[in-house]
Design a protein around this nucleic acid. Sequence first.
DNA 1: TATTGTTATACTCTATAACTATA
DNA 2: TATAGTTATAGAGTATAACAATA
Lengths: 152, 152
Amino acid sequence: MQNILRDERPAIALDTASTAGIIGYRLRRAQLSVFQKFLATFDTLKLRPADYSVLVLIADNPGRKQTEIAEVLGIKRANFVTLVHGLEDRGLVERTPSSTDKRANALHLTTEGVAFLAHARRVHEAMEQELIDRLGGDKERTQLLALLDQLT
Amino acid sequence: MQNILRDERPAIALDTASTAGIIGYRLRRAQLSVFQKFLATFDTLKLRPADYSVLVLIADNPGRKQTEIAEVLGIKRANFVTLVHGLEDRGLVERTPSSTDKRANALHLTTEGVAFLAHARRVHEAMEQELIDRLGGDKERTQLLALLDQLT
DNA sequence: TATTGTTATACTCTATAACTATA
DNA sequence: TATAGTTATAGAGTATAACAATA
């Protein structure tokens, strides 16, 4: 019986039964854990979760205006400005004035953005598969998403 | 066929299939939703999720030092100072110098803190039950917690 | 009048470095 | 030397108000 801890007299573990039973608490811890994994995985690509979701949404909905993309992601349009400008400065996103509404910017991926996202999607797919493996398989993933949906 | 939206020509819904399939994204949205509910529920009690978890943990582990409570919650001890001082200023928590270690503060709930937490626990239990109902029952709650555990 | 993108700003949360007093 | 509590500070993320151009 070896002591894993450095401590000579390891403290008695705390009673965390109450917090462990709280759905919101467990949700938060799981979300932080998954986001940490995302940040580590995408560290070299300099992509944060919000950036990735924006790129994906623009790719799947080309030509939409900032407000539409922002709103569906739950991002305030004021905060979306900095985010999308950052992606534009990196040459991934194009903001072209809308032909039908001179106030609006139509969002598109650049050629570089398309290639970048293709790579990012592959990286993400590997990470996602690892999460699915941890859950136990596709059935469990579907179960989880359904349960999360009922909370949202 | 009535149009639910105010818009005369409602925009075509965005394709959100890609983001909807991302575990981390769905986790984040669910967590935000549950936390919003918590904030609304505890608005009058002026309790944030972190405050509540700290009170619960001190109640279940009286006499522990700040670092221990902070660490198990994943809060940096530097940030924990403001949090626990706030609870002390409200008369809910007592910071008494430890008898065995003059550097450490032993944390306890005050009499007022015990009563306050008893009330908060009842309020929280009602909220938790509502979440369980949304999930479909205790079996689904257990399922969700198990799945979240595998991600953490 | 209302909306789009924008700027400015403030508040919360989180992270790090450095100090003091004790161990 | 290392640890507990603390302070200061900086960086994200998020929220609101207000403005110019346009609808």
